[in-house]
Design a binder for these strands. Sequence first.
RNA 1: GCGAGAGUGGCGGAACUGGUAGACGCACCGGUCUUAGAAGCCGGAGGCAUUGCCGUGGGGGUUCGAGUCCCCCCUCUCGCACCA
Length: 862
Amino acid sequence: MRRAPPSLYETPPRPPPGMLEGTMAYDPQRIEQHWQQWWDDKGTFVAKEDPAKKKFYALDMFPYPSGKGLHVGHPAGYTASDVVCRYRRALGFNVLHPMGYDSFGLPAEQKAIDEGVPPQKSTTEALDTFRRQLKRLGYSYDWTREVSTCDPGYYKWTQYIFTLLHKRGLAYQADAFVNWCAALGTVLANDEVIDGKSERGGHPVTRLQMRQWMLRITAYAERLLAGLDTIDWPDATRMHQRDWIGRSEGARIHFRVDGTSEDLEVFTTRPDTLWGATFLVVAPEHPAVARITTAAQKTAVEAYAKAASGKSEKDRQASKQKTGVDTGARALNPATGKPIPIWIADYVIYGYGTGAIMAVPGHDERDWEFAKEFHLPIVDVITGGDVTQAAHAGEGAMVNSGPFNGTATADGFAKAKVIDWLEQEKLGKREVTYKFRDWVFARQRYWGEPIPVLKDDQGKVVRTLELDELPLTLPPTEHYKPLGTGQSPLAALTDWVNVDDKKTGRKLKRETDTMPGSAGSSWYFLRYCDPHNDQELCARAKSDYWMPVDLYVGGAEHRVGHLLYSRMWQKVLKDEGLVRDEEPFQKLVHQGMIQGLIYRTPDKRIVPLAEVEERDGKAFKKGTDVELSIETGKMSKRYGNVVNPDDVIKLYGADALRVYICFMGPLESDKPWQTAGMEGQYNWLRRAWRVFFDDEDRPRVTDKEPTEEELRIIHKAIKKVGRDIDTLSLNTAISMLHVVVRDFLQLATTSRKCLEPLAQLIAPFAPHFAEEAWGKGLGKGDGITYAPWPKYDEALATDDTVTIGVQVLGKVRGEVTLRRDADEATAVAEARKVSGVARNLEGKQLVKVVYRAGKILNFIVK
RNA sequence: GCGAGAGUGGCGGAACUGGUAGACGCACCGGUCUUAGAAGCCGGAGGCAUUGCCGUGGGGGUUCGAGUCCCCCCUCUCGCACCA
């Protein structure tokens, strides 16, 4: 056995390499604590508005502070934004870099239910842990601006925003089909339901009709779509939001129900296929169903509807097999005047469009399958396919469509014509619908912002609370469990619920539902601009200065939830005149996940990391010869591969962790944590230390003039590192720094003109190290944070000689070193001297020479 | 099924507008130091083969030249999933 197994999993941890007795060396524990204290004392990162300076607002998605503390996943994004902030400060930007906590939510409440710990208490503790851990990583946050969504001074304004939404008619109560999770005792938003299960806990979710608070996000659909074209976000995320909003253009068409005064409305994107509509399909929940069903069909219809509503969303989608029942009623096709049957089927969704469709089996795959299943007529109304074999959804010309025969469907031409006709004949109208629904804005839970309204006995809202009545604080309780009735625990607190309202002189009741977790996080970026203001949610002058966010770093899992809600609130606040910008986040980047290694025995059993040892680059089960397979996957307790930043920092220091995180790979991609790789970066910092300090920890800097070679090294690095931070290619920036340190050690570089810029280039990544090198190593007094970023000389940053490949017939046969701008004749002459090239040219006739100065020389021969 | 993204050494990953594939790091091998080991330092290294050949998931194409551009296919990851 050659080396210790991954030391993170050993107890007690072995001392870091190089910390042997007597040797003075890089000591991260000492310097990191010292500089963190120093930054705190000096208020180095406190941001102040300064109109004379260009601002830069870098925002991290604030964490939900779980009791378990920080996970290595958190620093992945936080480190990247911190590097950018430190770089921007050196460039002279006025940087706002705040941090806070998304501290309302289910986990703390679940803990309260399970263990009886009040959420206020467990949240405060978790928050202290997070703050301590984040500070220990040396992030340059302005801690004076910290916010926490469960703080009454904060949620006062969340509640205030709710009252604004209510006044604008954007917050309303409605009987709606909601995602009810019985296990959690609450409703969930669509984005909190994944595959028919709750995002948190994976409990089953069913569709239920309930009276709920809703936010009319659909009213902002067009602006939410339009804004996507103005912001610098990943394409995948913008596309995902577009899909989620799901805009479609079409027509609403009226169908008379034969022999009744009922009217059924359908939404269709293909009004040009109206002549082919041979039946209607209505969602089982549709209220018209009960009215139109004939006596003969009543039993079958009711049975089907009941079965459909009992199914969860997931079950309903599990089978694509078409099912349905004829209601017995007939509708009149407004185009042909012919009676067509009306069916109910669960492939039609009540929440979308009008909850009823005209089925055109000839030109819609789903309708075609349904028609086949139930032997309903199929009519061809668009040329180009064989509707007896399959639905033809493509383009063609209208046929069997009366006056429209021959109209081409391409480019929506026929569609527009038919809609015009429908409007003229008052049979229907042009309409746009959206796939996304209004936002269910209530949870039947305790640990959230109380909704600031007063209601009468019937549950009708009498008034919202005025600003001077806010915050409406959460009353203390000892019973956190949702009541079995589908009400929140607040409903049991009758003293709190019943109010003698002085303003109206009436006996009123408080709302007992609370807001969802996404409420507080939908505007926190504004509060950071003016966190202590108790008169306004954020002074306009402050948000005008700092907003919009210039760089927002956070996980891709918030693509549609948080990132869509925040955009909506920003628009509402803009309409209120409270903010200037239409979009809150100018540039968005998603960090990838830090994955763990998963070890398995040949029979596929998982072996926790603590029981793994490495030998000769292979993994074995500790103390055996059982070789293990290695795969990458989620970090999870189950695999025993969760890495805690505290442990890493204890061994290697925060700087090494930061450098390793940056070095692992591109910010956006998922990458596996490898403790050995971590050690590599720690060792690099130790080597870098030796550039600045000798064996007795004395500074090595001299005022010697650097050689040209040394200057070239550092100028190239200044150029590369700056450019890489701009593009967030932090891994290649670190590679460059490796090269500089290697070369400077080899050249025994001590020149101040080289070491000062090197310390500065290291500073964004390993700030404590850099401060120590800058202060103690280079004798600088004021800290490195605001030292102006070094400038490079283009002439020195570019080599004037280059080594290029020499090819014969496209195959590399040698290389030559030339001046970058050497002419072709020189290049050819030099290349002919290279033996491998000469050998391949021998006896051949030169046809052509391809020469790209500084790039390639290629001889084409016969 | 639809949409998006990705396949490069043993591993993580580099490669500017097409121009010496494998930078940098890990692991590995050799040397040095040491009683020995660890760490450090110096050096090696894609594969096969002793002048050469093959190599960026596979197959075709464009080009003097392809990881990069075009066409077809395979695999993986992530979304969405009867949205009318």
